[in-house]
Design a protein around this nucleic acid. Structure first.
Lengths: 193, 193
DNA sequence: GTCTATAGGAAGATAGAC
DNA sequence: GTCTATCTTCCTATAGAC
């Protein structure tokens, strides 16, 4: 049952994902997706009979697998809370290429009222991410509500860091956000006013 | 020189902007923009000879004027730092409709390497926003670098809150983020771990 | 499974009447 | 300044050879 093909499933999804993350879902034409993968349009349809939408879904599922392996599982694993958050920041830094790559969960999501084809997948992934972080915060001693709020805030900070990096045309904001993640989830802030 | 027309410039830009914020720039077809404004395609081209791109630019400029009037000027105005940030949060809540409306600066921005037609406008607006917040933080006693970082973080938090609200399909994350803005910029956090 | 070729329609944009 | 009608290009998607 070996795969003789030109690209291989993982590589294929990675290239499609990279294109979506670069130009957005609506911005990505089949011509671009074809060029990015090295497969002609008809070949893409052979692999994804439901077309672009199926590509989006499978790319999202692949991102979900990455999230589980590189974020959720490590967060539930060994080490102190702080160590785990720091390790996670490192993973995110690689995944988003210091902020140069956008997030699919941002680019594929639909307005609040309208139900897009990716919405449940996106919601599930974000929810799982927040829950995993909240568990770490609880373990560190925060109440469930406080832990949940901090977790949510951390995810918002990551997403916002990516938006800011794009908007300002610099990876710095994202890098700074990443370095703040342990503090953001686990506390120790200094105040003045 | 009175305008006899059906919509009026401000209303027109508002409707175009609402469409962009709902479905994104690439996702917005001229057919949709036509329907949203009540103007036929040819009429839109009469008003915007350079087409969709010009619409995007002018909508962005209109957003810039809103930002100046409702955020930048109040931030530089009367009241304690905390009062000004709270007032700003209130303005943002209205503008983004509790998180139901996305942000143009997110939807129109291009990847870090690539220079899109809106990039400088977006960068300028984000930069001005951060700068105005940093000034408030400095006034509250933070060092310039610390103030700048806090300002940047606040903007990231707002953007991320919008992304999260969309992704989770709920306005709650955005509302919670807004309520945290004073603390986020001016400090007073409690720690455990 | 991959390709060339093409269908069929929607996209952005224009011409010209009123 | 707004419209109907149209143009061209690009898009998604399919047919059918290899």
């Amino acid at each position: 049952m070996a795969r003789k093909a030109s690209v291989g499933n993982e590589d294929l999804l990675a290239r499609l994902g990279a294109t979506f993350r670069r130009v957005g879902y609506d911005g990505a034409s089949l011509a671009q997706l074809s060029e990015a993968t090295g497969l002609k349009k008809a070949s893409l349809y052979h692999r994804f009979p439901d077309g672009k939408e199926q590509m989006g879904l499978e790319v999202l599922q692949e991102a979900g697998r990455w999230l589980t392996r590189h974020v959720l599982e490590p967060l539930a694993g060994e080490g102190s809370p702080r160590e785990r958050i720091t390790a996670m920041a490192s993973e995110l830094d690689v995944f988003y290429q210091n902020g140069k790559q956008a997030c699919l969960l941002n680019l594929l999501s639909s307005p609040i009222g309208i139900a897009g084809p990716f919405q449940t997948a996106i919601r599930d992934m974000l929810e799982a991410f927040v829950a995993a972080l909240a568990a770490v915060a609880e373990e560190a001693g925060f109440t469930p509500t406080e832990a949940r709020e901090r977790a949510e805030r951390l995810v918002a900070l990551v997403q916002g860091g990516l938006v800011l990096a794009r908007g300002l045309g610099s990876t710095d904001p994202f890098t700074r956000v990443l370095s703040r993640l342990p503090t953001e989830l686990l506390g120790t802030d200094t105040a003045i006013a």
